[in-house]
């Protein structure tokens, strides 16, 4: 199989602190695409959370900033209290629109705007959570021929969010958390071998 992707978007909610601390450090430094994360949490918890992830990861982990250019080798975390959107010119924008599924940032908002920009070159991943946010986003990514992954609900701290994503019938792969980064890296390498 070969997939050429330009961005990875990840949605995670309850249990996310632990899940991201497991997942992000497993990405290689030279991972060739940006990783963009919406984690549901309270505004104001941002600094500690992001510093801690950055210290443990080979990717640069930082908060996504308004109008910032989206670059590979970096994991961007949506700021608390704002929706994170992807613009056509590959920059971020923020909004304070009403919460979606009680959440701001919302996974659906990130996924839907990213799908519009990256189309089939997008990978969308749903991890642990007690919410159905992200399921609509997964549908949109699939409609745009992107690739979709759900964390194996068995391995999720809270299985509701991956189960809800899987119930859309738009999930391509169900994987344990630890296997996701190597799975993605292999996809990229396959692509490069074939081209």
């Amino acid at each position: 199989m070969k997939v050429d992707f330009s961005a990875v978007v990840i949605g995670v909610s309850a249990g996310g602190f632990q899940a991201l601390h497991t997942l992000l450090p497993l990405f290689p430094k030279a991972f060739p695409s940006p990783v963009i994360v919406v984690q549901h949490r309270m505004a104001g918890e941002d600094d500690f959370f992001i510093d801690s992830l950055n210290n443990k990861s080979r990717l640069t982990v930082k908060e996504a900033e308004e109008k910032e250019e989206i670059r590979p080798g970096t994991a961007y975390i949506a700021p608390g209290g704002y929706h994170l959107l992807v613009e056509k010119d590959h920059t971020f924008s923020l909004s304070v629109d009403e919460p979606v599924c009680y959440a701001r940032p919302s996974i659906d908002v990130l996924f839907e705007t990213a799908a519009r920009v990256y189309g089939s070159h997008l990978v969308g991943i749903i991890l642990t959570g007690a919410n159905s946010d992200g399921s609509n986003g997964i549908k949109t990514i699939k409609q745009g021929s992107g690739l979709t992954i759900a964390q194996d609900p068995e391995t999720a701290e809270v299985n509701l969010m991956p189960l809800s994503a899987i119930a859309t019938h738009c999930i391509d792969f169900i994987l344990p958390l630890e296997e996701i980064p190597s799975f993605l890296t292999n996809l990229v390498e396959d692509t490069h071998d074939n081209s």
């Binding site: 959107l85 992807v86 056509k88 629109d97 908002v109 839907e112 705007t113 519009r116």
Partner: peptide, 9 residues
């Protein structure tokens, strides 16, 4: 206006 939000609205 920034495109992504406008398009969404």
């Amino acid at each position: 206006y920034a495109d992504a939000s406008l398009t969404r609205r």
